[in-house]
Structure formats: structure tokens, C-alpha cells
């Protein structure tokens, strides 16, 4: 069998395909000018801020639990509907919380990307 290269990314990788006259901001990014780097920095920074904010919530919420259990006996030993609170939290409550955080993140990340697309495609 002959070996061949197979393109797996979107074909729109080259600046050559750009519509004539359109996207001067895209050109700044392509040519890696100072301004182009500012655009990229802004995108990466806002996405990173969003990701880190989810991580902070995760560290506080999840990372805090073992410490709370260790330090606060009333929390550790309390019961809800006859189920010990640590069980309720770790076996049930965390999962919808994860799901909600993920859903919120996805919406925000897509919004950031839409803003970036609008910014680049505006003349």
C-alpha cells in the first residue's frame, strides 16, 4: 500500500482562500503583527479566565469538602432524610453540580468565540 498524507483539519487553513478585500484583522493575525498578537492574547486570555473560574469553583466546592468533613463535626455527622450528609453530597449532589458547571462553561466559551469571530470579520 502506498503511503500518503491525509488532511484531517478543516481545509480553511490557508490565507490564500480568503475573500479578496476582507478581513484586515485576520491579516494582522496571520502576519503576526503586534496588533495581531493583541487580538490572539485577548481571545486566549478570556477563554483562560473562563476556564480558571470553573476550576476555582471546583477547587472551592470539591476541594473544600474533605476539609469541612475533617474540621466541622456537625456537618460530618448530620443527616438529611436519614442519609448521612457526606453520602448525599458525594454520591448524589456532586453529579448535577458538575453537569451544571459544564453546561454553563460551554455556553460562555461559545459566546467568547462568537465575539472573536464577529471582531475578526468586521471590516
Amino acid at each position: 500500500m502506498t503511503e500518503r498524507r491525509i488532511a484531517v483539519t478543516s481545509p480553511r487553513t490557508g490565507a490564500a482562500r480568503r475573500r479578496p478585500g476582507g478581513g484586515s484583522k485576520a491579516r494582522e493575525i496571520d502576519e503576526q503583527t503586534r496588533l495581531g498578537e493583541v487580538y490572539m492574547d485577548a481571545l486566549i486570555r478570556s477563554q483562560l479566565k473562563l476556564s480558571l473560574s470553573v476550576c476555582v469553583v471546583l477547587v472551592t466546592f470539591v476541594g473544600g469538602l474533605p476539609l469541612v468533613f475533617a474540621l466541622a463535626d456537625p456537618v460530618r455527622e448530620s443527616e438529611v432524610f436519614g442519609v448521612p450528609l457526606p453520602w448525599l453530597l458525594l454520591a448524589v449532589v456532586v453529579y448535577p453540580v458538575f453537569g451544571a458547571l459544564g453546561w454553563w462553561y460551554r455556553r460562555q466559551a461559545e459566546r467568547t468565540e462568537r465575539d472573536f469571530v464577529d471582531m475578526v470579520e468586521r471590516r
Binding site: 478543516s10 480553511r12 487553513t13 490557508g14 490565507a15 482562500r17 480568503r18 475573500r19 478581513g23 485576520a26 493575525i29 496571520d30 490572539m40 481571545l43 486566549i44 477563554q47 468565540e113 472573536f116 469571530v117 475578526v120 470579520e121
Partner: peptide, 9 residues
């Protein structure tokens, strides 16, 4: 980091 829809190098 850039969405695929934008035409970039």
C-alpha cells in the same frame, strides 16, 4: 484557540 469558521493561517 481560534474557531474553525474564521479563515486564518
Amino acid at each position: 484557540h481560534t474557531p474553525e469558521g474564521v479563515e486564518l493561517d
